[in-house]
C-alpha cells in the first residue's frame, strides 16, 4: 500500500513444482471438500479445493475473459467461469468498486494484464516452470523474463508463510500504521465471508472459501489461517471477501453470497473483477503451437511430421531427408538434384531442380546438370557429357544397344516361326488336293451312260419289280 519496490529481491517463498501426476496420494483431478465448522462457537460453511499440477489446471481470469481488466469490466464469477470451462471458480483479486479497476498485479495465462508497480501487497503466482511463489515481489521480479509468471494475482495479508501464521508481519509490511482509524486492523479481525489461495506441502494448490457476512457471520483472518494450517497449507494469502466471496462449482453458484439483491428477500452474487479458476489441464502452449489439439493436457499433433510435447518440432523420420532436403510440415522438401520421400534418389536423366520437377531444356535431348539444369552442348551440336554423368550416359547407351539387340532377335525369331508356319500350311494344302484327285474313295454316281443303266442299277431295278422273289 505504501511503498513501491522497483528492484531487488523481497520477502517471498518459492515452492518447487510438484512432480507430474500420477503422484501417490494425489488425485489428478481437483478435489472439492465442503465443511461446516465451528469457529469460536459460530458455525461457518465453506469449501476447500486441492488442485494437483496447478501449472496446467489453474488460471487467473479477467472478468468475462481477456481484456476485462483493460475495459474495467465487472462480472459474476459464473459469467466469467462458464465460458472458460472452469470446474471450480472463486472470486480473485481486489478491485475498485466504483470503476471496476483491477488492483495489484494480474498475470493471466502468461499475459501481464495489470501491474501494481511494485506496491507491497501479498502476491500468489505460478512461474513458467511450475514454481509456486507466495509473498512480496518487487516490480523487477514481477517482470522477470527468464522464468516469468504464468499466473499471478494480488491479495491483502500474507496469512501463512512457510507453515507459520504471518498476519502480524503482514500488517506491518502492508502499512497498517498509515491507515486511518485502524481500518486495516478491523479488516483483519472482523468476521466476514473470506477467500484465500495457497499451497500445501505436496505442492497442491489450495483454494479456500467461507460463507459469511461482515460483522455478523463468517471468520476473521486469524481463524482462516488456523483452519488452513490444519489442512497442511504451507503458504497462503487472503483474497477479496465480504460480498465478493463467491464459490462456483461446475458453473453453478455453490455458496451463499452476503450481498442483498434489489429485493432484500434474496441474496445475489456480486459482479467482481478477476476470478481464480480450476479447469481441465491446459497444454503448453495452450494452442499446441497451432499444430495440434489439446486433449487432457497433452498435445495431439496434426499431420504426419509435427512432433514434440508442444507440436513444435518437425520430424521426417530417422533418415532426416538424407541430408539432401528440408523437413517441412508436408514432408521432405528435397534440394535440387534429389527426389523421393526421403530425398535419397538422384534425379533421373532429363530432369533437374528441387524434387526433380523440371525437365531439362537441352538440345538433342542431352542430359543436364541435375541441380542447375545447365546444358553442356558444343557448337557442332554434339553432347559433351559432363564428367560426372559420363558413366550414367554410358550405362544408358549400353542399355539402349542391348535393348535393340534383344528386340531384333525376338523379331527375327518371330519371322522365322511365321515363315515355317506358312510353308507348312502351303505344303499341307497341296498334299490334300493331290490325295482327293487320286484317292480310293472318290465316288461319282452316274445316272446313265449312253442311254443304258449300269449292270448293278439294272439288277436293283428288276428286284424292285418282283415283290415275291425269295
Amino acid at each position: 500500500d505504501c511503498a513501491r519496490v522497483r528492484a531487488g529481491s523481497l520477502e517471498h517463498e518459492s515452492w518447487p513444482p510438484p512432480p507430474p501426476p500420477p503422484t501417490p496420494g494425489v488425485s489428478p483431478h481437483p478435489v472439492v471438500r465442503a465443511f461446516v465448522s465451528h469457529f469460536s462457537g459460530r458455525a461457518v460453511a465453506g469449501h476447500l479445493t486441492r488442485v494437483a499440477a496447478p501449472l496446467r489446471t489453474f488460471s487467473v481470469l479477467e472478468p468475462r475473459g481477456p481484456g476485462g481488466c483493460a475495459q474495467r469490466r465487472r462480472a459474476t464469477v459464473e459469467d466469467t467461469a462458464v465460458p472458460a470451462g472452469c470446474r471450480v471458480a472463486q472470486n480473485g483479486g481486489f478491485f475498485r468498486m466504483g470503476t471496476g479497476e483491477c488492483l495489484g498485479n494480474v498475470v493471466s495465462d502468461g499475459r501481464r494484464v495489470s501491474s501494481s508497480g511494485g506496491l507491497q501487497n501479498a502476491q500468489f503466482g505460478i512461474r513458467r516452470d511450475g514454481t509456486l511463489v507466495t509473498g512480496y515481489l518487487s516490480e523487477e521480479e514481477v517482470l522477470d523474463t527468464v522464468n516469468p509468471f504464468i499466473q499471478l494475482l494480488s491479495g491483502v495479508v500474507w496469512l501463512i508463510r512457510n507453515g507459520s501464521i504471518y498476519i502480524n508481519e503482514s500488517q506491518a509490511i502492508e502499512c497498517d500504521e498509515t491507515q486511518e482509524t485502524g481500518s486495516f486492523s478491523k479488516f483483519v479481525n472482523v468476521i466476514s465471508a473470506r477467500t484465500a489461495v495457497g499451497h500445501d506441502r505436496k505442492g497442491q494448490l489450495v483454494l479456500f472459501h467461507a460463507d459469511g457476512q461482515t460483522e455478523q457471520r463468517g471468520i476473521n483472518l486469524w481463524e482462516m489461517a488456523e483452519f488452513l494450517l490444519g489442512q497442511d497449507v504451507v503458504n497462503a494469502i487472503n483474497l477479496d471477501g465480504g460480498g465478493s466471496a463467491t464459490f462456483v462449482l461446475n458453473g453453478t453458484l455453490a455458496s451463499y453470497p452476503s450481498d442483498h439483491c434489489q429485493d432484500n428477500m434474496w441474496r445475489c452474487p456480486r459482479h467482481v473483477s478477476t476470478v481464480v479458476c480450476v479447469h481441465e489441464p491446459h497444454c503448453q502452449p495452450p494452442d499446441c503451437s497451432g499444430h495440434g489439439t489439446c486433449v487432457d493436457g497433452h498435445c495431439e499433433c496434426t499431420g504426419h511430421f509435427w512432433r514434440g510435447t508442444a507440436c513444435n518440432e518437425l520430424d521426417c523420420g530417422p533418415s532426416n531427408c538424407s541430408q539432401h532436403g528440408l523437413c517441412t510440415e508436408t514432408g521432405c522438401h528435397c534440394d535440387a538434384g534429389w527426389m523421393g520421400s526421403n530425398c535419397s534418389e538422384e534425379c533421373p536423366l532429363g530432369w533437374y531442380g528441387p524434387g526433380c520437377q523440371r525437365p531439362c531444356q537441352c538440345e538433342h535431348q542431352c542430359p543436364c546438370d541435375p541441380q542447375t539444369g545447365n546444358c553442356s552442348v558444343s557448337q557442332v551440336k554434339q553432347c559433351l557429357w559432363p564428367a560426372e554423368s559420363t558413366s550414367r550416359a554410358g550405362e544408358m547407351a549400353f542399355f539402349t544397344r542391348t535393348t535393340w539387340l534383344v528386340l531384333t532377335l525376338v523379331l527375327v525369331f518371330l519371322l522365322l516361326i511365321s515363315t515355317v508356319a506358312n510353308v507348312s500350311l502351303l505344303l499341307g494344302s497341296r498334299a490334300e488336293r493331290n490325295r482327293h484327285l487320286g484317292g480310293e474313295y472318290a465316288y461319282h454316281p452316274l445316272q446313265e451312260m449312253n442311254g443304258e443303266l449300269l449292270a448293278t442299277e439294272k439288277d436293283q431295278t428288276e428286284e424292285s419289280h418282283s415283290p415275291f422273289k425269295d
Partner: peptide, 24 residues
C-alpha cells in the same frame, strides 16, 4: 434484470475509502 443484481452492500475493505492510497 434488477431482481438478480447485487446491491454491493457487504463491503469489506482493507483500506479506508475516505482517502486514496498515497506513497511514502
Amino acid at each position: 434484470l434488477g431482481s438478480r443484481v447485487s446491491r454491493d452492500d457487504d463491503l469489506l475493505l482493507p483500506y479506508s475509502r475516505a482517502r486514496a492510497r498515497t506513497l511514502r
